[in-house]
Simulated scan of single mutants.
Amino acid sequence: MNLRRWPPAVVDVVVAAAVAAVVCVAIHIAYEPGAYPPDLGAYFLGTAIGAALLARRTHPLGVLAATTVLLFVYYTVEYPGIEPALPLAAALYTACAAGRLKWSAGVAAFFVGADLVVHGVRLGDPPLPLLTNIVQDSSLLIAVMLLGDTVRNRRIRLAEAQARLEESEAQREREAAQRVTEERLRIAREVHDIIGHSISAITVQAGLAQDVLKDRPEAAEAALRVVRQAARDAMSELKATVGLLRAQGEDEWSPAPTLAAVDDLAELARQAGVAVSVTVDGEARPLPGVVDASAYRIVQESLTNVVRHSGAQRAAVGIRYLPRELVIEVNDDGRGPSASPSGPPGFGLTGMGERVAAFGGQLETGGGADGGFRVCARLPVEEQAEEAE
């Protein structure tokens, strides 16, 4: 019979009825010379001791107090003595399970002491049988209290374990949501970098072709070739990005752009009318893929901003390979940070900042020493390379 499957109210009724029956049986068979014979009042007290347990879930200490009072009244009337462990056991267990161990120990000690005084001093029972009864009652009461306290501790541990599981699940959900957000931001950066740079080149070259179409058709034809190539490059990079997102395994990933293609970025900017120089300081060395691709995107976005917003005639791209970091610096001679681009603000600088922050690097943007606008990104390299290994 599994009581755990029963409704709590039914369990309480069964426990109360069982205790009441046991106490009434003990009263019926109890015998003590000179005691007042059991009557209806004695059985009423025994039944009341059991009935008090109906409130054990909501008022555990109150049940212990009621049981103590009822049992004290029973002994005061001088009905035949019964062992206190029988009526007290359920109430003590309930109180200890509710965290009232000290109160329970005090009540148990009081009745054991009273039993010792009554039988040892008043009735003059022999020492050995008296000691045996006291030890038996004390052992039963201690066992019941320890059981109740053990059940309480187990419930606490289960509740803590459940709370940890819920917190762990919530943490996993937060981390999953954060990863989704980070992935969306990464995709947004990739698409912005690809489309922004290519569309800028296409816009500038299309405008040039329109301006010189009648007077210089050969120049218009060259500009349209640039437009066509920029569109192809954009489609190629978009396909690579989409392929990377769809890939199920590392072997299916398309190669990401790297600093090796920085001259192509500079050439597109030159074709848009900006004189771009590229300088490399230090010994070029292989970089972790994510660092290399991010450095490429930073140069790409910087030159896109130069072409679209700065009105610059010249721009300088500097790449420095230092022992522990890679420094990307782009300077132009345009209007500087006070220039307000037409249309709504973009996400280029924000995307660059996110890329650099992802590696624990630093990004500086603002006016250059000789005017214009300056972008300087510092990407830790040695640490990233170690992680990649």
Results as ranks from 00 to 15, higher is better:
residue 191 V to K: 08
residue 223 A to D: 02
residue 208 L to A: 13
residue 199 I to M: 14
residue 199 I to C: 10
residue 227 V to R: 01
residue 219 A to S: 07
residue 198 S to P: 04
residue 229 Q to P: 04
residue 201 A to C: 11
residue 216 R to P: 05
residue 199 I to R: 15
residue 226 V to Y: 00
residue 190 E to Y: 11
residue 208 L to V: 15
residue 219 A to D: 12
residue 224 L to S: 01
residue 196 G to F: 10
residue 205 Q to F: 02
residue 208 L to R: 15
residue 216 R to M: 12
residue 214 K to C: 00
residue 230 A to K: 03
residue 208 L to D: 11
residue 227 V to H: 01
residue 206 A to Q: 14
residue 207 G to K: 04
residue 217 P to Q: 12
residue 202 I to K: 02
residue 189 R to Y: 11
residue 189 R to C: 09
residue 228 R to I: 03
residue 218 E to H: 07
residue 203 T to E: 12
residue 215 D to E: 13
residue 216 R to F: 09
residue 221 E to S: 03
residue 220 A to H: 02
residue 218 E to V: 11
residue 196 G to W: 08
residue 224 L to Q: 02
residue 198 S to R: 15
residue 198 S to Y: 05
residue 210 Q to A: 15
residue 192 H to S: 07
residue 221 E to G: 10
residue 188 A to L: 04
residue 188 A to R: 07
residue 213 L to M: 05
residue 225 R to T: 06
residue 230 A to Q: 07
residue 214 K to Q: 03
residue 188 A to D: 14
residue 215 D to P: 03
residue 194 I to S: 07
residue 193 D to A: 13
residue 201 A to L: 13
residue 206 A to K: 12
residue 224 L to K: 02
residue 188 A to W: 04
residue 211 D to M: 08
residue 191 V to N: 00
residue 212 V to G: 01
residue 196 G to T: 13
residue 203 T to D: 09
residue 218 E to R: 10
residue 197 H to D: 01
residue 193 D to Y: 08
residue 216 R to Y: 12
residue 220 A to G: 02
residue 220 A to C: 05
residue 221 E to N: 06
residue 190 E to C: 06
residue 222 A to T: 11
residue 192 H to T: 07
residue 200 S to C: 00
residue 198 S to I: 02
residue 210 Q to C: 14
residue 202 I to R: 04
residue 197 H to G: 02
residue 202 I to Q: 01
residue 224 L to M: 08
residue 203 T to H: 12
residue 203 T to V: 13
residue 216 R to T: 08
residue 191 V to F: 04
residue 218 E to T: 09
residue 221 E to F: 05
residue 206 A to I: 10
residue 194 I to M: 12
residue 224 L to N: 02
residue 214 K to D: 02
residue 195 I to R: 11
residue 206 A to L: 15
residue 191 V to G: 07
residue 203 T to G: 07
residue 197 H to T: 05
residue 211 D to S: 10
residue 211 D to A: 11
residue 205 Q to Y: 03
residue 230 A to R: 06
residue 199 I to D: 14
residue 188 A to C: 03
residue 211 D to N: 06
residue 193 D to V: 09
residue 225 R to K: 10
residue 191 V to R: 06
residue 209 A to D: 00
residue 204 V to W: 04
residue 227 V to P: 01
residue 214 K to I: 09
residue 219 A to T: 09
residue 201 A to Q: 11
residue 218 E to A: 10
residue 196 G to I: 08
residue 197 H to W: 10
